[in-house]
Amino acid sequence: MENLIEKLKTEIVTQLNLEHIKPADIGTDDPLFGDGLGLDSIDALELIVLLDQNYGLSIDDPEKGRTIFKSVRTMAEYIQANK
């Protein structure tokens, strides 16, 4: 799980063009949306693309993204549960 979490942090920084942020700066349980990283609605859609491209998991309803993308940990848990 820890490996997946670290991998996800790197993938998030790349996918979302978070230029000034190092993967290590992203707290595993920090909310991804809201003040911290300043992610917006397009970023939420890009995370759906990331799950599809890198993990073969497709999400058909962007509303589901709200719970899945709460934090890096919830993303990792979703991936583990649906592999």
Binding site: I42, L45, E46, V49
Partner: peptide, 9 residues
């Protein structure tokens, strides 16, 4: 086979 919303916008 990929469409990225961040590119498309």
């Amino acid at each position: 086979g990929v469409a990225s919303p961040a590119t498309f916008v």
